[in-house]
């Protein structure tokens, strides 16, 4: 995987993970202002990183498929392959 793609995927994973952590914490602390702020920050950065990755490389969700020429959801590699990590 080229360096730019790898860096962008790392950013997707990092903010995606922060969102999961915030989500679980907020489930048991649903009015924690600090956690809500943390969630908003990383959710925004996650969405931006996903949009950039999907526009340059491959879909992460079906809503990110570029359907102009082919069904990239199926034609691009799957994430359990070494080359995709």
């Amino acid at each position: 995987m080229d360096a730019e793609k790898s860096k962008l995927l790392k950013s997707v994973r990092m903010h995606g993970f922060a969102v999961i952590e915030a989500q679980l914490f907020l489930d048991s602390h649903p009015t924690c202002k600090e956690a809500l702020e943390y969630f908003r920050k990383h959710q925004k950065e996650y969405e931006e990183a996903v949009a950039e990755y999907e526009s340059k490389y491959a879909p992460i969700t079906v809503s990110g498929v570029n359907s102009d020429d082919e069904w990239t959801w199926a034609t691009k590699p799957w994430p359990w392959e070494r080359s995709e990590n």
């Binding site: 994973r13 995606g16 879909p59 994430p79 359990w80 070494r82």
Partner: peptide, 9 residues
Amino acid sequence: KKKLEYPVN
């Protein structure tokens, strides 16, 4: 989501 939560290589 077509990604792993943590990378495996």
